[in-house]
Amino acid sequence: METYESIRKWKDEALSSFMNTSISLNKFHDQVMLKVLEVAKGKMKQSTPPCEFTWFITGSGGRFEQGLISDQDHGLIYEISNEENDIYFKELGEEISYGMNCVGYPYCNGNIMSSNPTWRKSVEEWKIQLIEWMKNERWESIRYLQIFYDGRVLYGNTEYLSDLKSVIFHYQLQHPTLLQRFIANVKHIKNVIGPMGQLLVEQHGVYQGCVNLKYSAFLPYVNAVRLLSIKEGIFETSTIDRIDRLKGKDEYKEMLRDCKENFITLTKYRLSLLNAQNYDDTHYLNIKILSKEQKKEIKQILKCGKRLHDEVIELTLAKN
């Protein structure tokens, strides 16, 4: 009989053998999380769920881009809302979040967890919420929409999630200004190349001399590619898959040149941060320990990311 403790133990022991590639690491994370779900389900008073449901993860997990350590981001979609179902999934959602924390995925600061009613709804309620988010266009709700768009099903049928994503896709087709709101939401990036072409590193603190990979390297790629995916109605979640799909369209071929290779290299750098002790550690790359070639490579990746980010903004604004 599995428990959260036994899953954690297994995870800590087995993790090192899955760290060769980002793909194997993410597949491993998926397995761990699915085990958590099974244990959580087992703890419910009802032996079987009262209706069909989908459990999805989002954030870096959703994009299949988790590093060694990652906090939890997930949500629930269930068939129908009624008193019995609402109670069951409330309890299940809370149990999942608790279990994920036990196993080593810390609680999410932004409260994007199945324990939060905002991220735990029936299909119909989800539809209403998504449209509400798109209508009111608040900064937070626009961000929630993009987070939702990175959702990937771990358990249950995939239709609920793809149906909901197409709600977003069709709404933005009819409301072109929505895309601009999406852009405004991710327009800020941490500039990491100085006016003299130098790498701008953290000036103080424990990460002195490091480059923040998350904000300056990953996010420009991730955000730009997600934006194009929303625009084109691509429901894949990993940045690599999205790039592949987008490259199938002529208009993006040039723009996305080198992007896939750069992104894969970036993921490798992140994997190299092996001695990570906590979530933050996995984001900081100390450039002092890099060789000259590596520094050059990182710079080129950062520049390419910034260029892509700027081009996508320009393109999307120009078309509307």
Binding site: T58, G59, N109, G110, I147
Partner: peptide, 11 residues
Amino acid sequence: LTTAATKEKFS
């Protein structure tokens, strides 16, 4: 702010 803006969720 982090909580409100869910900054962390973007990576």
